[in-house]
């Protein structure tokens, strides 16, 4: 049985903001199916009572002094922006 359908792949591509042709969607369905099947090896293990590890070191609430630091200069930051105008980064209009 297939673990993932082509419609699911298209949905995931949308969530990931990746444009995808029909051909690519077919290829990804096959590849992801293989990878997910491989990952299901973990189902052999009963880990219901195991605490998840998100971070290996025992660190909590790393704080710093509440002191303002200088940010990066605006003209420098805009240097790598594909499009900018009047000190703002420009994108296509989002309100019709």
């Amino acid at each position: 049985m297939s673990r993932i359908s082509i419609d699911q792949v298209k949905h995931v591509a949308h969530l990931a903001r990746l444009a995808m042709t029909e051909e690519e969607a077919v290829a990804y369905t096959e590849q992801l199916d293989k990878m997910i099947s491989f990952a299901e090896l973990l189902n052999e293990l009963d880990a219901d009572n195991v605490e998840p590890t998100s971070h290996v070191l025992d660190m909590k609430n790393v704080m710093r002094e509440d002191k303002a630091n200088k940010g990066l200069p605006q003209d420098e930051v805009l240097k790598n922006a594909p499009e900018h105008q009047d000190g703002y980064i420009k994108v296509p209009s989002i309100i019709e």
Binding site: A16, A19, N80, P82, P92
Partner: peptide, 21 residues
Amino acid sequence: VRYGYRTPDPENLIDLYKKTR
């Protein structure tokens, strides 16, 4: 948006993200 490659002719913002990536 802020740095790196941007697709040349996006239809809208979502299209810009998707094609760029």
